[in-house]
Design a protein around this nucleic acid. Structure first.
Length: 521
RNA sequence: GGUCGGUUCGUCUAAAGGUUAGGACUCAAGAUUUUCAUUCUUGCAAUAGGGGUUCGAUUCCCCUACCGACUACCA
């Protein structure tokens, strides 16, 4: 890769993540940001956040803040951006509107672009007509001579129309029958014949704003971007971009391109879309998003994912370091990342593996850190947990959950007495002689001092008791657990006893005997 | 329809002409455990199809099929 990556040695690496604030960033966008970040930091370069808000129609309030917060949550540090500043600003395209017109006119002057006065309606009509003939409507070299453009109209006429306030656009004049050679860091060489392309709109008078193509190319040039790393959906417009660099005479400063494979739906066809998450039961957004009309979309953060786990799982979608390691810190990802290990095929997102990643991070965390998280989660539900109790619970539960919040959901019994007793478990373990044995267990537990009521001691006493009486561990322990938590599967009995305490343990067993005692199975 | 891109277990992927095609997730079985979970072991499971090139193709070339993106005065 480095052989055709001369920019890396010649220029300081500068990459940009350039979302448009038309809604929340979804995980595909986050992954693009991440790959840009890995690449920039790997090469000691800069990561720039540029907001591409040239579509005044689709602007969504709050989207920009959402983008910023998402990147921050992921641990991406922005070197230059709207909030961060930098010497290539402004970093929001709507604030750069003054500069685009002159570049568009430069192209008109050099004969690479032209003014077109067609109305949206007439264009639509032509498109319909072409379709009814079974043809594709293409505003290209064949057509432009027939339209009302600065190519056919006199200079005076063009001037008059503009001054009169007629609507116009500036279109790029895509040459006829030219082989456009492109090089992509991930896909290799791509060739397209210019005759298959059309004269794209570069600038529109309706809002005096450029379209993506013009804004993107001039800004990348002006901001001295060296590497454009973006989604595969942009590959079809690469020839246009290359032609723009050529028309501007910027070929020697053109960035290198890398088009990332798309993220696909977990099931079915097509790329991952905003609606998929709701249907499939997993988030497609990093953070919860409340749309302006009040709709709420789930986020990874709110679902309980650790940002490190989220970053890790996204990093491995379409990239891998070639080893069998799967858990990576941000620094490791930066150190290991390389574009030539990015795969070409789209990656299907797997929610199950996402959970597994979170579990991996959860079990690796210290009990102290987990207790902290667990306590604040409990506080958010309006409950208090002592530090000691939180430490014990996270220690007991960490291997059996994927998320911190599950330490409450799957272990409410540490706080609440069972409301009912699982029928299947009762059938299996609540035999005739059990109530009497439970009463003996109560005595055994009662004999322990408050101070020695800790897991190891409890277990020892219970074991001694069971062996002495020759009752059988499984038989007694499962019944005790049933009394304590209402079901027969869960943490070790002694652990539960310790956490809920001696008195509560005894109360729960007595209560179970009272309720289940007469059960005739 | 056209242009471009892609195709290895169900999923994420490794193998940059020579491997019994490897790992991970999921699923299943066994061992351990008082149950569950963990852990460990094992198992199921793939090179889209057809032609070439080659002593030898997952790997290179061609065709077909399928998947995807794009085809706006959206990005």
């Amino acid at each position: 890769m480095d052989s055709n990556c001369s920019n890396i040695v010649k220029r300081r690496v500068r990459v940009r993540f350039a979302p448009s604030p038309t809604g929340p960033l979804h995980i595909g966008g986050v992954r693009t940001a991440l790959f840009n970040y890995f690449f920039a930091k790997k090469h000691g370069g800069d990561f720039i956040l540029r907001i591409e808000d040239t579509d005044s129609q689709r602007f969504v309030p709050g989207a920009e803040e959402y983008i910023n917060e998402s990147l921050r949550w992921c641990g991406i540090r922005i070197d230059e951006g709207v909030a961060e500043g930098g010497s290539y600003g402004p970093y929001k395209q709507s604030e750069r509107r003054g500069i685009y017109r002159q570049y568009a006119d430069m192209l008109v002057d050099s004969g690479h672009a032209y003014y077109a006065f067609d109305s949206a309606e007439s264009l639509e009509r032509l498109r319909k007509e072409a379709e009814s003939r079974g043809e594709t409507f293409n505003y290209n070299y064949k057509l432009r001579g027939l339209m009302e453009t600065s190519l056919v109209l006199s200079q005076d006429e063009v001037k008059a129309r503009i001054e009169r306030g007629d609507q116009w656009v500036i279109r790029f004049m895509m040459p006829e029958n030219e082989e456009i050679h492109m090089s992509d860091l991930i896909r290799g060489d791509v060739v397209v014949n210019s005759s298959t392309l059309d004269d794209k709109v570069l600038f529109k008078s309706s809002d005096m704003l450029p379209t993506y193509h013009l804004a993107n190319v001039t800004d990348d040039y002006l901001m001295e971007i060296t590497h454009v790393i973006r989604g595969e959906e942009w590959l079809p417009s690469l020839p246009l971009h290359v032609m723009l660099y050529k028309a501007f005479g910027w070929l020697d400063r053109m960035p290198e391109f890398a088009h990332l494979p798309l993220l696909l739906k977990p099931a079915g066809n097509g790329k991952l879309s905003k609606r998929d998450g709701d249907k499939m039961g997993f988030p497609v957004f990093p953070l919860q998003w409340k749309s302006p009309d009040g709709e709420i979309f789930r986020g990874y953060r709110e679902d309980g994912y650790f940002p490190e786990a989220f970053v890790n799982l996204l990093a491995l979608l379409g990239w891998n370091p070639g080893t069998e390691q799967e858990i990576f810190s941000m620094d490791e990802l930066i150190g290991l990342f390389s574009l030539d290990r990015v795969s070409k095929a789209g990656a299907r997102f797997d929610p199950e593996k996402a959970k597994w990643f979170n579990h991996q991070y959860l079990v690796r965390k210290s009990n102290e850190e987990l207790a902290e998280l667990f306590s604040s989660f409990m506080n958010s539900l309006g409950m208090e947990v002592s530090w000691e109790k939180a430490l014990r619970i996270v220690d007991i539960m960490k291997v059996r959950v994927n998320f911190v919040h599950e330490m409450w959901e799957k272990a409410k019994f540490f706080f609440l007495r069972p409301e009912s007793y699982d029928e299947a478990s009762v059938r299996k373990f609540w035999k005739e002689d059990i109530p009497a044995i439970m009463n003996e267990v109560v005595v055994v537990l009662g004999e322990l001092e408050e101070k020695e009521f800790v897991s190891a001691k409890i277990e020892e006493s219970l074991e001694n008791f069971i062996h002495e009486k020759e009752y059988g561990m499984g038989k007694v322990m499962n019944a005790v657990r049933l009394c304590l938590i209402g079901v027969s599967n869960g943490p070790a009995v002694a652990d539960v006893c310790e956490v809920i305490g001696r008195e509560e343990s005894i109360v729960r067993i007595e209560r179970a005997v009272e309720i289940l005692g007469n059960f005739e199975i």
